[in-house]
Design a protein around this nucleic acid. Structure first.
Lengths: 260, 260
DNA sequence: CGCTTATATTACTCACGGGTAATAAAAAGT
DNA sequence: ACTTTTTATTACCCGTGAGTAATATAAGCG
């Protein structure tokens, strides 16, 4: 952010470009890792596998991460970051309870169709260090509470029929989380279609007034999803330093070099 | 079943009692194993842990199972057996599509609140041998198709509103499967209450005519579930040999000794 | 060009845990 | 009581894979 207007004589430019290259490599590791972890499971996928796929060798990975466990955690964190952003956006949207719930369902469904999103629900927190496990569990609790809050808000403002927020949140979040288990990125269903369909199906039983269904199955790819679900290249912007979400904890140390 | 009327002089009696004792030990292993596998994850839980909890040593386990993988598979199979029974019962019930779907949702929810039921969705099929993995995937496909069939039946007979059976089945099964991830057996929610609530919540949006809700949350334990959700002792009868469900494959070799 | 720092490699350590003898202790059967 | 079978134990093997030197190569950078 403090970068001087980069001509080409600046002695700082190479520094920055080096850092950027490093960050790109870090992300490449995470993308390969999350793919293999999802495909084979965390314990069956070895760091040799990850390295081999990147055309390097295992010890090279330790230039970017302290341990396999840290890689696992960082994969999860990238998914969690997406969700934090989604929630932060909805919180300032000024919608009523039902509107916020629908927005969350839709965006969360699209996230679950990404590999980092799926990692949030397919990785086992028990495989993390005690400290990271606590962070993950706190974040999961935060998501659950957000669902419940939106539902309770909707009941309070009259947009959602009276119901038990706890079990209703479980039912909705369950459907969404399950996407991470069955969704095949090479399958027939587009993330947009899934997100639209789930947003409709999961909330139609809750609305106090009937929903105007627009035959969601026919729209193969709505242009209305805030985050592009699957662009060919750099799947998500290079992250402008840390980003503070309003939700619980998570130390904001995105992208730091561990070894030195 | 060919047992002679056992007085007390029969020389066959000890044989039977021996077999029974063996089967009880086998099941004890599976109950301990499924508990630890769910608690710590399959790879973190060691056979030493399992054995220690049974007050024996690791090699003793090999009198009952060929490998750790076989234990994993048998845990899954016990859960799958419950589901097969449920489906077989519903298939001959003569209900309409919505009725069958509701019955399945209710019984499946209760199963997910058991450890063997949860193992069906928390274990990773990739940890099984190729052959067993195929069996598991076929069974999963069978369950999915049953959900879709009941929904399609309901649409055909007019009890369910027109909808996409595939995505609707995903949404419902997702909610139910997720129970296996969050349900705490020592928590406040009883399996019966969850089953009732989910059966209501997940199908109310589908019914062509409005549902007569009876405030399901207040009924802590309905007496109407065909299988008792959680009896204190012998969780399921000693299994009268093999049991053939109508669904796909699974070799019916329950309870055989591997070594000899 | 030399000095320093980042990045990668080869070759290794080592704990962990599934699985296997070899063998002892019970039970069952005769 | 003697034999056989079942069930368990102790003591080991050994493949695997995370993580670590020691070291080579390449890239800033004055």
């Amino acid at each position: 952010m403090n970068g001087p207007a980069a001509d080409d004589h600046s002695p700082w430019m190479p520094f920055e470009s080096r850092r950027r290259a490093r960050d790109e490599k870090r992300e490449a590791v995470l993308r390969t890792a999350v793919h293999l972890f999802l495909e084979q499971g965390y314990h069956r996928a070895t760091l040799n596998d990850v390295a081999e796929r990147l055309n390097i060798t295992k010890p090279a990975l330790y230039n970017y991460f302290r341990s396999k466990e840290e890689i696992l955690f960082e994969c999860w964190a990238l998914g969690q970051e997406q969700v934090d952003d989604i929630i932060a956006g909805i919180n300032v949207s000024g919608e009523n309870g039902l509107g916020k719930l629908r927005a969350l369902v839709r965006a969360y469904a699209a996230t679950m169709a990404t590999e980092f999103g799926a990692s949030m629900v397919r990785f086992n927190p028990r495989d993390l260090s005690p400290e990271n496990e606590k962070t993950v569990r706190a974040a999961k609790r935060g998501i659950d509470q957000t669902f419940r809050r939106y539902i309770a808000d909707g009941v309070a403002d009259g947009s959602i029929k009276p119901c038990d927020p706890k079990l209703t949140a479980f039912a909705i979040a369950g459907s969404l989380n399950w996407i991470g288990h069955w969704y095949q990125r090479d399958g027939a269903l587009s993330p947009g279609a899934i997100a639209d369909e789930f947003a409709m199906r999961l909330t139609e039983g809750l609305a106090t007034r009937s929903i105007k269904k627009k035959s969601a199955l026919e729209a193969p790819d709505g242009n209305n999803s805030r985050k592009r679900p699957k662009g060919g290249h750099h799947e998500h912007h290079p992250r402008p330093a840390a980003r503070a979400a309003d939700q619980p904890g998570r130390a904001g140390h995105r992208l730091r070099r561990p070894p030195t």
